[in-house]
Design a protein around this nucleic acid. Sequence first.
DNA 1: CGCCACTATTTTGTATACAAAACAAAAAGT
DNA 2: ACTTTTTGTTTTGTATACAAAATAGTGGCG
Lengths: 217, 217
Amino acid sequence: MKASKPEPKQSAAQRIEQALVLEIGAGALEPGQRLDEVGLATRFGASRTPVREALSRLTAQGVLVQGERRGVFVARYSREELSQIFEAMHEIEAACARIASQRLNLLARSEIEAAQANCIAAATAGDREGYLLANEAFHLAIYRATGNPYMADMALEFRRRTGPFRAKKFVTKADLIASANSHQNLINDIFSEDSATASNGMRTHMTQSFVDALKAN
Amino acid sequence: MKASKPEPKQSAAQRIEQALVLEIGAGALEPGQRLDEVGLATRFGASRTPVREALSRLTAQGVLVQGERRGVFVARYSREELSQIFEAMHEIEAACARIASQRLNLLARSEIEAAQANCIAAATAGDREGYLLANEAFHLAIYRATGNPYMADMALEFRRRTGPFRAKKFVTKADLIASANSHQNLINDIFSEDSATASNGMRTHMTQSFVDALKAN
DNA sequence: CGCCACTATTTTGTATACAAAACAAAAAGT
DNA sequence: ACTTTTTGTTTTGTATACAAAATAGTGGCG
């Protein structure tokens, strides 16, 4: 997974990869659904080659999975697997929060706050799509506050993997607002600049997120 | 190395990917070195297509990097980047050790001990190649002791990324023996089944590993 | 001798073609 | 009617061909 660079010219493969990540993240593609190479090729107005490349990379990232029977599928996880994935994500997010709390600077603070403002705006507007993006940006801001792009990439990768499952818990406007409120507590914990507080705050947030996701899946 | 499944038939792309991972992990390919598609293709007796797929997946995993100027390169990291990568790895490994210490069972214990026995054997024999493999197996055994394959995959991914840099510190027989001894302390800490002891033990091991790697790079 | 334009060669990305394998379906035999 | 064999279709993996971009040369001209 790469840090989003301003690439003026994008290869078709990258374009397709990005589009698929977005669709999967938003839950537009159901877990377990098969991705047809030729179908995608015609849909994106390309040939199978770049499609194949995109799929290959996404499987390498764990977003897709290949060979359950045949073909490439949106990763579908059992309750147990989901639990394991969330455990791993839990650890990473907690570590990110801890490190971020130790390295907070004015810029990071303002980025996190700005992202949270967008979350609140989208939540009160009931804009589901917008909230999903704002939510991702919010967590990304925390990741970046670690000052460690590798931690950030790893965390983002898990966020993408679990995207389809977390997306299901965001349906009503109340869901969005609840999530945004949870963010606020998290911000307070991280801004306390105390390692344990930040870490535990994130663990609480993640546990809640996990419980909700399990209910919806 | 992936969970070794009995794959009777392996696609050329997978074969190439595995071979490259091995070579890079052993340090046979220098960081920063360019990988020529056609060169690899002829070398593996295949066409560019499967080579391309392998390279694409390896870049997605961060083992390779593309577009510094042009082409695909073995990832080369600055001191600062290396430091960040090791910090991330540090966190993951510590989390693995902690979780493993809480879930230790007889099977996991024996696997770890068996792997360590191989490490000692390779070290006393001065078998560098063998030690690299045994060492990887040893850490893999710890990862697997977490009972969480996703944690294990993530840890393994970082291990691969840092492979070329860690490999440089294993030159003399004394290096191997020192590493094996360090393993022994780590085992004691993990087998204590105390979270903090296990976690700190791994942090110590990783810090040592990091210091050595920095010296060599 | 140095600089710029222009050409040639390499290299990447994509499209298409083809072979082999997997799956589905129909036909034959018991 | 049920199994097994055979045939046909879809799908995957790989090879090759081609176009566009990038780098490296080459030569002219100051």
